[in-house]
Computed example of a mutant assay.
Amino acid sequence: MEAQRDEIERQKDEITGQRNIAIAQRDEIAHQKKEITDSIHYARRIQQAVLPPPKFLSDLIKENYFILNKPRDIVSGDYYWLAERDSQIIIAAADCTGHGVPGAFMSLLGVTFLKEIMGKIKELTANEILDELRKSVINALHQPGVQNTTRDGMDMALCIYNIDTLELQFAGANNPLWLVRDQVLTEYKADKQPIGFYEENKPFTNNIIQLNKGDAFYIFSDGYADQFGGPKVDEGGKKFKYSRFKELLISIQNEKMPVQHDILLETIEAWRGPLYQVDDILVIGVRV
């Protein structure tokens, strides 16, 4: 009997020891997770600090715009960029390789290079800005232009809006621009190449568009159209898709731009339902 008691005590001590180890490991994991999360939250503050404040546009075009920026994670691989020179407003919507922390690092590169490029170019053209940005990204990422080179980079829609002449320049790296006029949506296609290494890099195309009062134009990443959801979320849902996105934008043309922002956000949230947000979402709209 005494031997049995000793064995039971030994087993109890062993179980207690294993439980203490498990608790210590749990606490260590929780501590490490908190440190990582705190670091990412701080990275978000840095990312937001380098982005132009939305007030930048409101000072120039009042409430005739919106920026819907909804990261999938704490930090985002999508970013917007704004600048102004001589009655010209430069507006860009970019989608970097990856999301979360890797995408956020790429976005900081993009913002830094765009600021440098603006200081170098005297006569602003949308395609030249993308050409110069591509050179900077390739050099920074050491992409020599050979097979098996990493495909890091970004897709981007960039436009230059002259608020005096109503002329709009647009250049796109995989991402288009949509113009809505009199309830008709026209798509200005992007060049099928990224900002980064590509087997057949060509100069980007500059599209010149004469705007009319009342027109609205939109640039965006692919996150909105690619969101899964809909009536069959229990089966994984289906993509929102670009066709539904176009129909939605046409249907809300009578609304002011801040209201359009709210409708777009509410619509995609209702579509997503309980499903996970699959990508960063960025949509920029401007009313002439």
Score class of each variant (00 low, 15 high):
residue 267 T to Q: 14
residue 207 N to E: 14
residue 179 L to E: 02
residue 198 Y to N: 12
residue 73 D to L: 06
residue 238 K to E: 09
residue 72 R to K: 15
residue 267 T to Y: 04
residue 119 G to F: 01
residue 67 I to E: 01
residue 74 I to N: 02
residue 211 L to N: 08
residue 200 E to I: 12
residue 210 Q to K: 09
residue 221 S to I: 03
residue 118 M to G: 13
residue 280 D to H: 06
residue 68 L to A: 06
residue 163 I to W: 01
residue 129 I to W: 00
residue 245 F to Y: 08
residue 86 D to E: 09
residue 14 E to H: 12
residue 194 P to W: 00
residue 99 H to L: 10
residue 90 I to G: 12
residue 126 A to T: 02
residue 67 I to D: 01
residue 88 Q to L: 04
residue 32 Q to Y: 10
residue 258 P to F: 07
residue 221 S to V: 03
residue 275 L to H: 06
residue 10 R to N: 11
residue 277 Q to P: 02
residue 277 Q to M: 10
residue 254 N to R: 04
residue 72 R to I: 05
residue 47 Q to W: 02
residue 128 E to K: 13
residue 180 V to L: 12
residue 274 P to S: 13
residue 153 G to N: 00
residue 19 R to K: 08
residue 96 C to T: 09
residue 264 L to Q: 01
residue 285 G to M: 06
residue 96 C to N: 08
residue 257 M to N: 14
residue 255 E to F: 15
residue 276 Y to T: 15
residue 249 L to Q: 00
residue 39 S to E: 11
residue 39 S to Y: 05
residue 118 M to N: 10
residue 238 K to S: 06
residue 224 Y to K: 14
residue 186 T to S: 15
residue 156 M to K: 08
residue 150 T to S: 09
residue 207 N to A: 05
residue 254 N to Y: 02
residue 176 P to A: 08
residue 202 K to N: 12
residue 25 Q to I: 10
residue 69 N to R: 02
